[in-house]
């Protein structure tokens, strides 16, 4: 592993569970690695790890983040290299220990060491606003707030934004923590019919910049079934394209936002209805 790097630390967070944090961590991590960056994705969900499953690495976990913090294993022993992308690594969470084993000093030490070895450190936060979530965001340079266009998710995201502005190292130094909104599970037709909060609604309420809009898609479920990030498993599918665009925005590229729309034309729709 080459030394002397200085990674950018991202936290993927949301407050609410089930909105797509782990899926997005895997998809963005793989996309960054695919674009040539050296990436480690770190699972902070101690006791309920799932990032290993999303990457298809669940049977290769030997040591984990807690082992490294406790000095049972060296960082190199715990890092798992992806089988498809040689630039992509996973630092798994412990499945057996409780989250109390995650100490502030331990996390600081591990992140500091990772910073010298990678271009990007992507921290997958657990749901909630407890210790695991605050430690996952603690050292972040930037946060990706994963939000579904739905009232409880937006409310929890608002709360998380408040925590990012008070509980992170950067905030405590009086610096600004960059925030990016990633809207997931977006149903274009529902938003068009006024059945789902629109992108504008969510943006107006949370008032942070938009990183991407990931449409609801069966490809996301299929990718998790086979243990491969959707950006690798179905790279040309609408959600994967949206993740790739978001990734390039993270890297600083200026790409126009593509709002997913219903791909079926009116004729198709009519035929579709007749067939159904």
């Amino acid at each position: 592993m080459s030394e002397g790097k200085s990674a950018r630390v991202l936290v993927v967070t949301s407050g609410k569970g089930g909105v797509g944090k782990t899926t997005s961590t895997a998809a963005l991590g793989a996309a960054l690695a695919h674009l040539g960056e050296k990436v480690v994705v770190v699972d902070f969900d101690v006791g309920l790890r799932n990032l290993d499953l999303m990457l298809g690495a669940e049977r290769r976990v030997v040591f984990d983040l807690i082992n490294v913090i406790n000095g049972v294993a060296k960082l190199q022993q715990a890092l798992i290299r992806d089988k498809r992308l040689e630039n992509l690594y996973l630092l798994p969470a412990s499945q057996t220990r409780d989250k109390e084993a995650l100490t502030e000093e331990g996390v600081a030490k591990v992140i500091a060491e990772l910073r010298t070895k990678f271009d990007w450190i992507v921290c997958d936060s657990p749901a909630g606003i407890e210790r695991g979530a605050t430690l996952a965001m603690r050292h972040a340079d930037a946060a990706i707030i994963v939000t579904n266009p739905e009232v409880s998710s937006v409310r929890d995201s608002d709360r998380i934004i408040g925590l990012l502005d008070s509980k992170t190292e950067k905030a405590e130094r009086g610096e600004y923590v960059e925030k990016h909104l990633l809207i997931t599970r977006y149903h274009p037709w529902r938003a068009a019919r006024g059945e789902m909060l629109s992108i504008e609604d969510v943006l107006e309420i949370l008032s942070i910049p938009l990183l991407g809009i990931i449409p609801e898609s069966e490809e996301v479920l299929r990718a998790s079934n086979v243990g491969s990030p959707v950006t690798l498993n179905a790279a040309l599918s609408p959600p994967a394209r949206a993740y790739f665009e978001a990734t390039r925005r993270l890297k600083g590229e200026d790409i126009p936002m593509h709002v997913p729309n219903e791909s079926r034309g009116i004729l198709n729709k009519l035929f579709g209805r007749k067939a159904a």
Partner: peptide
């Protein structure tokens, strides 16, 4: 006629103003 999204938006705006 408009769907329930406008109501969701209104409720959120009021709630978050208080919570903030």
């Amino acid at each position: 006629r408009r769907g329930s999204a406008p109501l969701a938006r209104e409720r959120l705006q009021i709630l978050l103003a208080h919570e903030r």
